[in-house]
Design a protein around this nucleic acid. Structure first.
Length: 154
DNA sequence: GCCAACGTTGGC
DNA sequence: GCCAACGTTGGC
């Protein structure tokens, strides 16, 4: 069982958008970075833990807990000419991009990135590293446990 | 296969 | 809106 932090822009699929979707599940489409793709395709398993993170917004931070609810399958948007994620080099026979499904477990009280930065236990988190731009990053179990035990208040 | 130019990400 | 950091592209 692995743990992940997955970024989304709230204008794209916010935590409330996710909560309103059928089965509270979303296909994690649109990832066009090979490292992030490989995490989904090669390492993610059903029931892996996910921290749902809002990025590129006024107050970035963790907004919910989710889980991986499918293994990876070809990202449908790569074949869709009308999608901004269309990839002319991808074919049905040799898809280039993959995604998993992510299902909401529960919304949590907002944990801003500012607060994450205050804890030495989390200083090695990939998301907090300078220059990090990966939208999907692995979390140490220790980091996951620390956040759930000490930072999640409900 | 190098590497400069370019585009994107994302915190601030 | 700025800009540092990074990934990708494409000419050579």
């Amino acid at each position: 069982m692995r743990y992940w932090l997955m970024k989304t822009e709230p204008g794209d699929v916010s935590i409330d958008d996710l909560a309103a979707l059928p089965n509270q599940t979303v296909a994690w489409y649109g990832v066009r970075n090979y490292q992030a793709r490989n995490f989904m395709r090669d390492q993610m398993r059903v029931n892996d833990g996910v921290l749902y993170y809002h990025s590129n917004c006024a107050t970035p931070g963790i907004v919910g807990i989710a889980r991986v609810s499918s293994t990876a399958y070809p990202d449908a948007t790569q074949f869709d000419r009308t999608s901004k994620y269309f990839d002319p080099k991808a074919t049905q026979e040799t898809p280039r991009w993959f995604n998993v499904d992510v299902q909401l477990v529960r919304k949590i009280p907002f944990i801003p990135i500012k607060e994450l930065r205050q804890h030495p236990e989390l200083e090695r988190m990939r998301t907090l590293q300078r220059g990090n731009r990966l939208s999907i990053t692995p979390l140490d179990p220790a980091e996951w446990n620390f956040i759930l035990k000490h930072l999640v208040r409900d």
